[in-house]
Design a protein around this nucleic acid. Structure first.
Length: 359
DNA sequence: GGGGTCCTGGCT
DNA sequence: AGCCAGGACCCC
């Protein structure tokens, strides 16, 4: 099975990897291989190229499954727009270092290895859609670079940041940064003109709620939204403006853990049920981030965003016809069922997750 | 609450 | 040859 879906944990791994390896690097050139991946960049691919070229990667941020890179102008100031990346369901970001620099302790300048490294660097992966040619760290003045620069030993050579996407549900685009100061700190009066970079968000991402791993995640706000809707709980869990970072797989896992049926109206969840559900979501995401935690370092020359999927121990998703783990624990055999839901699949235990009483 | 659209390739 | 998955966003 090729191409696992990038979920929040994969996107976070990619974010951290770029933060470690690519910040501070100027964009020397942009190669648009397939303009469909820039569908959401309304000014068009040519504008995307020229707008990005000459700016440097500055900071790497994430909200839910959206990733964005802030940019430095040539004079080191923060650019007023950021590069937004969404991996969709088959996207990857691959980072490749240009060979030739002082590669750390490597002494033998074996020309065979050198040309192999060059070939690997030049190889064009299948489904490559956009390539960013990055220069060495600090090749132009990027005095304002924040958030950790690229690892020192590789920082002297160029690098390629490749956007690969088989199904083109993902994409890249530029979006203006707007302030989004969490309510919890808003009272500490952030000066209007001087909003810290971490409280800026691309306009296109502003409607996305903070995810459960975000330090400013607001469970009370989620609860309020639950109470205001008539939708079933799974639909609400998948609504990125209510709570972000939860896809079809983790929704089923969290609902299984919280013993809730996907069609139970969100507003009928008790406060305790809501708390348990949000705890389940948080746990699922956190465990997956830890388990899928193949480090960016191990992967970044090859494949990113493909970590750990098979390792994940799933209790619900994809387990139709298999015994419910919790029922088995209780000495009971209940077979998990698959049901169509919003043109896709829902998996649940018919015993633990009973249908809500119809009204 | 429902449905459609984007897209590819693996499956029947 | 046709179906279908999936995230985000669109419309009614």
């Amino acid at each position: 099975m090729e191409g696992t879906m990038p979920e929040l944990p994969e996107v976070e791994t990619v974010r951290a990897g770029i933060a470690d390896h690519s910040l501070g690097r100027p964009v020397r050139a942009v190669r648009v291989v397939d303009a469909r991946s820039l569908r959401r960049h309304l000014p068009g691919p040519a504008h995307f190229e020229t707008a990005l070229t000459g700016r440097a990667l500055r900071g790497a941020y994430r909200r839910g499954k959206y990733l964005w890179l802030t940019l430095s102008e040539a004079d080191g100031t923060l650019a007023d727009e950021a590069l937004v990346v969404h991996l969709g369901m088959s996207g990857q970001l691959l980072v490749r270092d240009e060979p030739g620099g002082d590669s750390g302790s490597e002494s033998g300048s074996d020309s065979g290895n050198e040309s192999e490294a060059r070939a690997a660097f030049d190889e064009q992966p299948r489904h490559l859609r956009v390539a960013l040619e990055l220069g060495p760290v600090g090749a132009t003045s990027v005095a304002g670079a924040t958030g950790g620069a690229a690892s020192a030993n590789r920082a002297n050579t160029g690098q390629r940041l490749l956007f690969v996407d088989q199904r083109i549900f993902g994409g890249m685009f530029l979006s203006p940064l707007v302030p989004d100061v969490p309510a919890a700190v808003a009272t500490n009066k952030v000066a209007p003109g001087e909003v810290p970079e971490r409280f800026l968000v691309p306009e296109a991402v502003k409607h996305i709620a903070r995810d459960p791993l975000d330090e400013f995640f607001d469970p009370a706000a989620v609860r309020r939204k639950f109470l205001r809707t008539s939708s079933g709980i799974k639909k609400v869990l998948l609504d990125q403006s209510v709570i972000s970072g939860v896809g079809n797989i983790y929704a089923d896992e969290a609902l299984w853990r919280a013993r809730l049926h996907y069609a139970k109206p969100a507003r009928t969840l008790s406060a305790a049920q809501t708390r348990e559900l949000l705890e389940a979501v948080t746990q699922v995401l956190r465990e997956s981030l830890a388990a899928g935690g193949t480090s960016f370092d191990a992967l970044y020359v090859n494949v990113l965003g493909e970590s750990g999927y098979f390792e994940r121990s799933l209790n619900a998703y994809g387990r139709a016809g298999e015994p419910c783990h919790r029922c088995a624990e209780a000495g009971r055999t209940t077979l998990m069922v698959r049901e169509p839901f919003q043109n896709r699949s829902s998996y649940r235990c018919p015993h633990c997750q009973r249908a809500p009483r119809s009204r």
